[in-house]
Deep mutational scan, measured.
Amino acid sequence: GTLHLNGVTVKVPSLEKAIKAAKKFAKKYNLEVQVHGNTVHVH
Rank of each mutant, 00 (worst) to 15 (best):
G1H: 11
T2N: 08
T2E: 07
T2A: 08
L3Q: 02
L3P: 02
L3T: 03
L3K: 02
H4K: 09
H4W: 13
H4R: 08
H4A: 05
H4G: 04
L5S: 04
L5K: 03
L5G: 03
L5I: 14
N6K: 08
N6E: 05
N6G: 12
G7E: 04
G7M: 08
G7S: 06
G7H: 09
G7N: 08
G7V: 08
V8D: 03
V8P: 03
V8N: 06
T9C: 15
T9Y: 13
T9H: 09
T9S: 10
V10N: 03
V10G: 02
V10W: 14
V10F: 14
V10Q: 03
V10A: 04
K11F: 13
V12E: 01
P13L: 11
P13E: 10
S14Q: 05
S14C: 12
S14M: 06
L15R: 02
L15P: 01
E16K: 13
E16V: 12
E16C: 14
E16R: 13
K17I: 12
K17L: 13
K17R: 12
K17T: 07
A18N: 00
A18F: 09
I19Q: 01
K20N: 09
K20P: 00
K20C: 14
K20H: 07
K20M: 10
K20R: 11
K20G: 04
K20Q: 12
A21P: 00
A21W: 15
A22R: 01
K23E: 07
K23Q: 10
K23W: 10
K24A: 12
K24R: 13
K24S: 08
K24D: 06
F25Y: 11
F25E: 00
F25V: 03
A26T: 01
A26S: 03
K27D: 04
K27A: 10
K27G: 03
K27F: 04
K28V: 05
K28W: 11
K28A: 06
K28D: 02
K28Y: 07
Y29H: 08
Y29A: 02
Y29L: 04
N30Y: 08
N30W: 11
N30T: 05
N30G: 14
N30S: 07
L31Y: 05
L31N: 02
L31S: 01
E32I: 14
V33C: 08
V33H: 01
Q34R: 11
Q34S: 13
Q34V: 14
V35S: 01
H36S: 10
H36Q: 09
H36E: 12
H36P: 02
H36A: 08
H36M: 12
G37I: 07
G37F: 05
G37K: 04
G37E: 05
N38I: 11
N38Q: 06
T39C: 15
T39G: 04
V40D: 01
V40A: 04
V42A: 04
V42F: 13
V42G: 02
V42Y: 07
V42R: 04
H43W: 14
H43G: 10
H43C: 15
H43T: 12
H43F: 15
